[in-house]
Design a binder for these strands. Structure first.
Length: 268
DNA sequence: ATGGTTGGGATCCAA
């Protein structure tokens, strides 16, 4: 069985790429981030054609998460327990479409698009940290209630947990950039402390191994990327992992997303 | 030559 996560940066713009990728990768469950659409213009037929059930959570042209599965898709949850809302200057706070969960083939799968944070002193940063803490509390609660549960927290975490997860940590420090700050890294570690494991890194060791390359500055050809997309697995699920890969090829060519898909292989 | 992109109820905002 294969499960994967992919920030597609607009599902409509990427429809042909996604279809071709599903075709050749033959994966059973795909967690998608940044569909950038509402249900009205979601490409339902693409997944139908390919034999996948799909659940989507999209409220505007921003964000949007989905789960496609051909091993069942049950008990869909849109947003997690106490998921924080966001509004500029604290006004008109809305629940953003950043988390969807479903049970697929016995695995509780979450497709997650962690808030970007934007800048260390931006109001999006406390939102990001609070969002992560609430997700951690939710996931930890589920795991404590059922220690044998198979849970996959996968998506775009917008955090580079280690210095080698960016091409030049000094550049990030000098510029005072997000994704590498101690509070963000602490928020990520809290998931590991709660019992969730990064099951991809052991199969794709760095340095120089990334999941995202900025469109600007010719980051991809210059091999200047970031490892920010992760699959965190509960212990029972982690025990089933037989391999993992980052599909860097998918970042190549015209019409690529700025993120590569991340795939995890599981024993039956 | 020190920049260079891509996407969206778009002509700016987000990444």
């Amino acid at each position: 069985m294969k499960i994967a996560t992919w920030n597609v940066n607009s599902l409509r713009a990427r429809a042909d790429r996604v279809e071709a990728w599903l075709q050749r990768t033959d994966c059973d469950v795909l967690a998608i981030q940044e569909t950038k659409c509402k249900d009205d213009n979601f490409p339902w037929e693409l997944f139908e054609r390919m034999g996948y059930e799909v659940a989507h959570f999209g409220v505007s042209q921003w964000n949007g998460v989905a789960i496609a599965s051909r091993v069942g898709l049950d008990d869909v949850e849109r947003t997690f327990l106490d998921q924080p809302v966001f509004g500029k200057n604290g006004k008109d706070a809305v629940q953003e479409a950043r988390a969807i969960g479903a049970t697929c083939g016995g695995i509780r799968v979450w497709s997650l698009y962690v808030p970007n944070g934007r800048a260390l002193n931006d109001e999006h940063m406390p939102y990001k940290l609070g969002w992560l803490d609430a997700l951690r509390a939710h996931a930890e609660g589920r795991l404590q209630a059922e220690p044998e549960a198979q849970i996959a927290l996968m998506g775009d975490w917008n955090i580079a947990p280690q210095d080698d997860d960016v091409w030049d940590i000094d550049y990030f420090r000098t510029e005072g950039l997000t994704h590498v700050s101690e509070p963000e890294r602490a928020a990520f570690r809290a998931f590991e402390n709660a019992g969730f494991l990064d099951v991809v890194r052991p199969h794709t060791p760095g340095p120089g191994v990334y999941t995202y390359w900025d469109y600007t500055q010719l980051r991809f050809p210059k091999k200047e990327g970031m490892r920010i997309d992760f699959v965190l697995a509960s212990p029972a699920l982690a025990a089933r992992v037989t391999g993992a890969a980052i599909d860097r090829e998918e970042r190549k060519g015209k019409g690529a997303s700025d993120h590569a898909p991340v795939i995890v292989e599981l024993s039956d």
